[in-house]
Every structure is written in C-alpha cells, then in structure tokens.
Design a protein around this nucleic acid. Structure first.
Lengths: 150, 150, 150, 150
DNA sequence: TTTT
DNA sequence: TTTT
C-alpha cells in the first residue's frame, strides 16, 4: 500500500440496458457500457471518436442502475479506473478495463430523455420514478468486488 | 458529437523510465506506466491490489515527461480515458486502455524521491532540475494523437 | 511553491447572462454565477439547498462564454477554486470565492434548453451557433488574472 | 432539485492542527484550513499565490482528521464546495466558503512528513498510527451538516 | 457489439 | 491568522 488516488468522472449515454448479476454472497452487480464522445477537434479527421467504457456497480448503486437506467440515457458516472488481468478457459490472457462506479447521476430529466428520442427509450416495466434522483453508493458496500466472476 | 465529459485524476508511481517516440510530423510522444494502489480494505483479502495504467503524453508535456520523470517517481496525472481498438499484424483484435495526459505534477520533491528509495532512482543522464516543476499541456498541442502508430 | 493541486468540476445553471469586462491589457473577462443544487437528502430538511458559485473566465474561453452562454443554460465548468482577499474603498476586508474556469461544456443541447423553459431563455442577439460546442481554455491565456480589478 | 454535480479535489498542507467540535446530536465535526499553492507562472509576479481553504468533515471522517492530521501534513481532500450565507449576532451578512470533505488521503508518509520539517511537526499526543492510512467518509454520515452552528 |  |  502506498500513496495513491484514482478518480474518474464521465458523462455519456448507455449503449444498452444494464445487465444484472448477483455475486456468490447475493450482492447485486450491474454492468453497462457508456458511450463517451471525444470533444470535436477541427484539426484532425477523427473517425473513431467515441470511447466505449464498461461501468460496474455493486449493492444499492447496482439496484439504482437496474431500476432507473436504460439504453440511451445520459448520465454522469463517478468512480475509479480498474484494469483487471485474467485468463480465458483456454488460458489466454485477457485484460478488462472498467470503471467501478461509486456515484451515478442523471444528466437529463426523464422528459428530456423522451423528447430527444423516437420510440420506446423508457422500458415501461421499470417502476415509475421522479426525475433527477441521484444515488450515492459507498465503497464500503462493494464488499467483494474482486471475488465476482463476471 | 454529443454531450460528454471524460476526466481522470491519478496519483501513483512510474514503473519504469518513460519511453520516447516521435510521430510522423515530429511531435514528441512519451509513454509510461503508472502503478496506482487501490485503497486498502479490511474486509477482503485482495492480493492483486494495484492498477497498472498506461499514460500517454504529446508535445511539450511529453518533453516534460522525458526530461523530468523517472522510474519510481510519485506523480499526479490528469487526463482523459481512451480505449483504442486495433489489430495486430495477424489481424487479431486488441484493445489498448490509456490515459491521455494533459497535466502532470510532482507529488514529492526530488529530495523526498531520493530519501524514499535505495539505489539509483534518479537517472543521472537527466538534466538537473529544480524541485516541484509543474507542466501544463494543452489539448491543442496533441495535434495528431490518432495518427501515431504506437 | 510547494506540492499542490486544485481542481473543481461543477454542473449547474447560469443565474443570469454573463457579464463582460476587459482587463487593462485588453484581455476579455467573463463572469457569471452558477446555481448548483445540492443532492437531495431525505434525512434533513435543508431549506437552503443551492450553492451560488461565481465563475470567472479569461481570453478565448471568456469569448465563448459571452457568445454562447445565457441565463438558465445547463453547463459543466471545470476549473480551480480561488479565494481572494481584498479591501473595499473604506478599507473593509472582503473575501471573494470564485472558480477560475479552464473548460466549459454544454450539458444540454440548445433545443433542450428551449424545451425546458418558458419565455426568452435564449437572447436572440447572440449569434446562432451549432449545439454542443465545447470550448477548451488554457491557463496560459489567463495572463493577468490577478491584476484585473473586478 | 435539478441536474447538478459538485466535486472538488485539493492537495495542500494544513495550516494548523484541526479544530474539533460536536454537533447537538453528538456527531463529531473537524475543521481545518488547507494551504493550496497556485501553480507557478513565469508570466506574472503573483505575490499572493496561495489559497487558504476551509475544510469541514463529519462523523467518522472527522475522527480520522482529529486523530491523524496535524499542522503541516500534506493531504489530498475530495469533497464538495459549499457557500453558506449567514448573519453575525449584529445581523451583518457573512459568507463562508468551505469544502465538505468526503475523502481525505495522506500524500506523504509519516516519515516523509518528519524528514521535511524541523521541529515538532508531529504532536506526540496523537496516537501512533501506520503510515498511509486512508479514510473514506460517506455523505450519508453527514447527517446534520446544515444544523451545526460553527 | 455499441449511445445521441 | 496561515502550510512547505
């Protein structure tokens, strides 16, 4: 253990509805991909100008994610960058890059989310909810983030 | 182009001296790996508790990196998270995760850096430099970050 | 000079149109107040739940502010916190708290800004502009931030 | 309640040992001032180049502050910017600017802290403690931050 | 694989 | 009022 700090703040849109899982001890885990466009630049022709970033959450924050976030919604994600090395069943090395979220906030109201899109952006199975709910997770709830096979 | 934001702040130590390259148009590119320890937690036995994060810089910031940063030095890096997809010569898909730095600052003086370590932490080929220099890079200098083959 | 870091990120709405000034050497200075609501909490009855934060910008960033930002617009401001002590003409001590911006980004499109409000949110004297422009200022442009009497 | 975000990250040194208070309901409150030097600039002669920023913490984070932080120690503070308006006993309006901390981390080891200074930087009444302890507070513990008269 |  |  040494002196360190690791903080990421992202604003972007979910590319799909979140995936829900449960760890061995029953903690909920929610995962989604955030599309974060790079700022436009006039000096280069950057055809590949979006970063697709995996966002993982645990516990109560994961419940918030599965209850309220859907494909296309604009959110701010605060968390820390984690680079995990693991092996496939064949023993091939892989690296997973993800942001472990500890705070997620809407960056548009539900009505804005609907105004901006055609078609069923909002999954009607999701419980109704007031706009602009913010959820604060705490790291202490992420009790077994490194044990979970996902 | 859409609404977005992408900001990363890291504090950690260089695992090696930086690597220096030059892009086709002569812009300097400096690359190093930052070891960022995760905060200790009493509730899990996390044997793999450090993230090793690739840090890329361009232009004048890259010159600062190559002039003043060496293996072991504690620095704060501010930048944005970039996930690049590319292919090997064999056509295999690869993903590179890196932080494109736009600001790097010492988090210890040169004398602290030397006190904390045994052996030749400071490469004597590096020009002498006053403690605590800070360098601010600007995104506008990173003129061809996506053209560079590295 | 010592080891230090100072970074602020805010999302909120302008309480009025920006004020424009010019420093002695001709650099443009733009100032506005950002209303930043505190996250709602169920455990307290917090009647005074918005922070009103003065945002100062210089040079090209100040031009962006005066050209594109108006009362009510939702923006993300990145900068550093500055606490200035000064005296009134009567010699009374005063303190000014402000965030010196180095990056400002829209957090809603112009069409969303208009959908969300009643009345003339957008000043029609402002030049027309594409949605979602982002402006990056650099600290090196803020050449005389401490000389300016405002 | 609207869309908002408020995040501050500071690195600097305590100007004095923290002050300890207790709220009506027994929650501990710790307060200190952080000296944050501005980055040096060659283009101006900035004689007043340090921001002195009030840092407030509550609950377990406040206990960490009172147990481990002393005058001169280099720390990273993460929190949110709060601007409170209040009146003196004479009815004069006052404004208090402070950062409500939710995470504080050492930016130097205890041995570095001692190496860097002459004289009794470390108050010997403070309980001995391992280097590099990090404390994470959660906002939910700051249960009555707006009720406290300090 | 991808959001707007 | 101030840290290094």
């Amino acid at each position: 253990m040494s002196i360190s700090y690791n903080r990421v703040v992202l604003v972007g849109r979910l590319t799909r509805d979140p995936e829900i899982r449960f760890s061995a001890n029953g903690t909920q885990v929610s995962v989604f991909t955030l599309a974060v466009d790079r700022p436009m630049r006039t000096d280069i022709n950057d055809s590949n100008n979006t970063d697709f970033i995996r966002i993982v959450s645990f516990g109560k924050l994961a419940e918030f994610v599965s209850n309220y976030l859907v494909k296309g919604r604009l959110v701010l994600v605060e968390g820390s960058l984690r680079i995990r090395k693991w092996k496939t069943q064949d023993g091939d090395p892989r690296t997973t890059t993800e942001v472990v979220a500890n705070n997620i906030r809407f960056m548009e109201t539900k009505s804005q989310a609907n105004v901006d899109t055609e078609g069923p952006l909002i999954d009607e199975n999701v419980k109704p909810v007031d706009d602009d709910i913010t959820f604060f997770g705490s790291e202490s709830e992420n009790t077994d983030s490194d044990d979970i096979p996902f």
